[in-house]
Computed example of a mutant assay.
Amino acid sequence: MAATSKLDLYDLLLLKEIRAARSVTGAVSQVGLSQPAISIRLGHLRQHFGDPLFVRTSGGLMATPFLDSLMGDIEHAIKLLNPEESSRRAFDPATSTRRFRLGLSHIAQMVMLPEVLGQLKSLGPSLQLDSIDLDGATASLLESGQLDLAVGYTFELHNGFFQQRLFAENYSCIVRRDHPRIGDALTKKQFHDEEHLALIAPATGHSLLDKVLEERGVQRRIAARVSSYLGLEQILVSTDLLAVVPSRLARMLAYGERIKILGLPFPSPTYEVRQYWHERYHYDSGNSWLRKLIFESFTNLPPVFTKLVGAAQPL
């Protein structure tokens, strides 16, 4: 190993963030240096250690085995040297400029994200938030620190993850208010005969809907499938399609008074919404603060009932 220069905290942060982002560009916002400055510093680090440290692959820059062997010591040194990383330093939302990264389904983005953003604006005017779709990479993003938290249904998680229950959710059926064949109640025959719009969302609780309906012998005539419900209201008011959606989303869409909510003609499937984080960040003061905020905002929300049709009822 060539001892050409001494290392400082920025060098350690640089190695950590490039390894997490798998690119020099992705590390820019985290270490506060420009891309050219990072490239120059990385060159010095390669000379210092006598190792490439990162190699370019189809998946981005990957750490060499030598750098991987150092990461435990690097993480420990960062926590000792960097007040922002220290778990013993209290997180102050009023002064922090931290950018949180929250994994949410499209439905959670519509139902939960406005409340979270409102809370952040009130408690931490300079805090920032990125909302990232849930997918098959969610677990690895939590582990690497590219996600602070994920909120949704149970993921395929291995050892090393924490989870916390927030609330239970059920389903309702929604149609356009002036649907020509469906009035203020939905029969089993109508549910079977009418055409449906369905959501393809493999990393969310909604992915269980088809399985549960099949187990109960309930069939739908799926006319169209979409990967997001972000344009759901406009689709329904322009067609005669039915959609089975989480009840809190149904209530939100009904506020526009173009959609009406109908109880399902059979017992509604239910699922639990939880928040998840990796043990690496369990003692991180900022992560802990965000978890507490979300828990206190959404824990044990009362169930949403769909007995009434017409003006939306409070959630």
Rank of each mutant, 00 (worst) to 15 (best):
S297L: 13
E156N: 15
G217N: 05
G26F: 07
R89G: 05
L232N: 09
E85Q: 10
P65A: 02
I222G: 00
A150T: 00
V111D: 10
P36E: 03
A223R: 14
L53I: 09
L15A: 08
A201P: 13
S5H: 05
K121T: 15
V244A: 11
K292V: 07
Q146S: 09
Q146R: 15
I174C: 07
A108S: 15
Q119A: 13
Y10Q: 15
R274I: 07
S126V: 08
E257Y: 00
D284L: 02
G32N: 05
L236F: 02
H48K: 14
H44R: 14
E214K: 11
T154G: 05
A90S: 14
I74S: 03
E85K: 06
Q47L: 13
L80S: 12
P93N: 00
Q219W: 06
E115T: 15
R22T: 06
G183Q: 05
S58A: 14
E75D: 15
V212K: 07
L242I: 13
G124R: 01
S69P: 15
F66C: 10
L127I: 11
H44N: 07
R101I: 04
L264K: 05
L33T: 04
L262P: 08
Y229T: 14
L129H: 09
P302F: 03
G50V: 08
N170G: 11
M110P: 00
V212W: 09
P83S: 08
A137Q: 13
Y153E: 07
A3T: 02
L236V: 15
P269D: 10
L308I: 14
V31G: 07
V116D: 07
Q190K: 01
S126N: 11
Q30D: 04
L147D: 03
Y281L: 10
Q119H: 14
D135N: 14
Q313E: 13
N82G: 03
C173R: 01
K188R: 09
A21P: 00
H282R: 10
A3K: 02
R99I: 09
G26D: 05
G136M: 00
T4V: 14
G256Y: 00
P36W: 00
D210Y: 09
M110T: 11
Q109S: 14
V237S: 08
L208T: 12
G72K: 01
V244E: 15
G32H: 06
A150E: 03
L230P: 04
I235M: 00
L113Y: 07
A139V: 06
V244P: 04
I74W: 01
G310T: 11
M71L: 12
G136W: 01
